[in-house]
Design a protein around this nucleic acid. Structure first.
Lengths: 223, 223
DNA sequence: CTGTGTGAACCCCTTCACAGCG
DNA sequence: CGCTGTGAAGGGGTTCACACAG
């Protein structure tokens, strides 16, 4: 079955590759809007941001018909539609677990609030850190207070920035606290129960990929 | 043509998905070795780390025949082979461009040296930061000294942690300095000339994916 | 008999090409 | 006439299933 015209909340299964690109499209549209562009075609977006026009249209087709034939898309209108699809209405409050260098950097990262994600709490188990706050002013709580703070602050996403050997425990704690979406920066294998969404950002994998490239392109090949 | 038995340095085109998994395998093998396991089958690896046995074998087949039929793989032997394939012999020296919170956290991230990547220099354009060093002791240089320091220090990989609006300029500078592998944390569209490997780590895309999950699973569906 | 290496089947994603609407 | 929306074709990646080596 193909996406239905009037089916706003596509209950079909949409690939994660598609939703990731939706996120990209939102940013591209934001840039276009900032440039004063009111209307764009899929070809124009594709050309400017090195994407494929057909793919853009296919991705959008999963969620409705947003374009006008012969004209293109309303930049603001499409951006609003996609933000709604992605669930980016009100700001989403997030917790950062692990108040080390990386955790604090994430909590203070200016890109997150700008995109609708607001880090409202850091968590750690080191007594020396608890009660203080990050440079950006995010308070640090004892990890044991996670369930309470999650409930009181309306936190919906956890970012995990702890050493690999405690990552699984911390993820378990986050799940027990009712969090259903987790972004994990610790390397290694971590598992979650069904119904919980876990995304891993394994920095070592990225670097290994670059090392492989360097090792297997004896600076001769153009590609 | 299929991977040849004796073809150690597979010149066929290997998918990036495969090389990413090699990185995972190396870590899994390290964990097994630490547990005292000397020999392991693809099924055992798959079961323990939630992978697919056939895929493991297929991935390895691109680079040689490392297993013993009826037995499995030597944990240490396979790990050594894969590290060679990935070009992880000597430590690889990396530069971090952008000495903000994120850049400094990356420079001091303990996981990198542990895996053979050593941040030896931070770069920034803020005069107040130049000449100081990160908490972990990584010196901060003026961005204009990048070409010199890259040459003297034998830096081969750049990690970019600057605001999105200057990311393209900074990438250009890195390329001009002779760096051919770049890990970019700035969101947005960045392009590089042919022959340069650029990997993007767009944190917003990950969070948007989680937001989509939260918005489209009215905590009823098991998956 | 166990487990690798691998052709073949399967499935999904991307890209093409065009009908049809504005 | 231009551009969307979409069936159909094409290309890859994953999984299956088994011949065969140890």
């Amino acid at each position: 079955m193909t996406p239905q015209s009037k089916n706003r909340t596509a209950s079909e299964h949409v690939s994660e590759l598609t939703t990731n690109r939706l996120s990209i499209y939102v940013r591209c549209l934001g840039q276009l809007a900032a440039s004063g562009v009111r209307t764009v075609s899929s070809h124009a977006i594709a050309a400017q941001f090195h994407l494929n026009a057909a793919q853009i249209r296919k991705d959008l087709a999963w969620f409705g018909e947003f374009g006008v034939r012969g004209v293109g898309y309303s930049v603001d209108g499409l951006a609003a539609h996609l933000r709604k699809v992605l669930g980016l209405g009100d700001p989403i409050r997030v917790a950062v677990i692990g108040a080390g260098n990386l955790g604090q950097a994430l909590a203070d990262y200016p890109g997150f609030p700008r995109d609708g994600f607001v880090p409202v709490a850091l968590f750690d188990r080191a007594a020396a850190k608890v009660g203080t706050e990050s440079r950006g002013g995010v308070p640090i709580f004892d990890i044991r207070r996670l369930p309470t703070v999650v409930r009181k602050e309306g936190i919906r996403i956890a970012m995990i920035a702890v050493p690999a050997n405690v990552a699984q425990q911390v993820v378990n704690v986050a799940v027990a606290a009712g969090l259903r979406a987790i972004l994990n920066f610790a390397p290694g294998t971590v598992t979650v129960p069904p119904g919980i969404k876990l995304k891993n950002v394994d920095l070592t994998v990225f670097l290994d990929g670059l090392a492989y490239y360097l090792a297997n392109t004896a600076n001769g090949k153009t590609k």
